[in-house]
């Protein structure tokens, strides 16, 4: 395994494993968020559990590492691919119908996801887990996730930004999920369409789950 990580397949494998790890995290995060729709108190209990505890901090660091590895390798692979394409570009290009838009724009989609992530971290993680570590006092408590959620998702521009972010993640997941399994080698002619269908369903369920929480909070603010 010495130099296998440096090979094209090795680098793609790292992208796949880190991507699947982030997919699992999204599933966990969405499930956690859904709690807020039913009970603010229960959601705050989860927030308390994931505060400045050693296990939550280790989890946060592992998660950050997952993001960093995924992003760094995305840029390494993209730069290599640009170089491999050569200096001259085609004057006339037509995309085959079978080629999905998301598959050709993963870096662009990833960049939108990253910008959204910065916004999200500044609004929640910085005001909650980080504030607890640093001893910063804000208008709501460090474990009062329900209040922070209600505060931000009562603002229409924030809601729109989050929904756009979710659409970008949806596109990214639709291609990324089956693509990760293809890269690992868990695919064949029979499973190709099955994995694509599972990817689309998974991405839709996860992102609808996230969107439901944001929309529910906004509707609550109007009532």
């Amino acid at each position: 395994m010495s130099n296998s990580c440096l090979s094209s397949i090795g680098k793609k494998l790292i992208m796949s494993i880190s991507g699947l790890f982030l997919v699992l995290f999204l599933l966990f995060h969405m499930s956690m968020n859904l709690v807020a729709v039913f009970s603010g108190e229960a959601y705050n209990a989860v927030c308390e559990f994931l505060g400045a505890n050693w296990y939550a901090l280790v989890g946060t660091m592992v998660l950050a590492l997952g993001f960093i590895v995924h992003i760094v390798f995305a840029f390494i692979l993209s730069l290599q691919n640009r170089k491999a394409r050569g200096a001259e570009r085609y004057a006339y290009q037509e995309k085959p119908a079978a080629v999905e838009w998301a598959s050709q724009n993963m870096l662009v989609l990833g960049s939108i996801v990253f910008v959204g992530l910065i916004l999200h971290l500044s609004q929640f993680w910085y005001k909650m887990q980080f504030a607890e570590i640093a001893g910063i006092t804000n208008q709501y408590g460090v474990a009062d996730g329900a209040a922070w959620m209600q505060y931000y998702f009562s603002q229409l521009p924030v809601v729109i930004c989050y929904l756009v972010w979710f659409v970008a993640i949806w596109f990214h997941l639709c291609h990324g999920f089956w693509s990760a399994l293809q890269t690992i080698g868990w695919n064949n002619k029979v499973w190709m369409d099955r994995w694509k269908c599972i990817s689309n369903i998974f991405a839709t369920v996860v992102m609808l789950g996230f969107a439901a929480v944001v929309i529910a909070a906004y509707i609550k603010s109007l009532c």
Partner: peptide, 16 residues
């Protein structure tokens, strides 16, 4: 890899 070919991103353009 040595000859400078790029990395597959599963766009499926090749197959099409």
């Amino acid at each position: 890899d040595e000859l400078g070919f790029g990395n597959c991103t599963n766009t499926r353009a090749c197959e099409a």
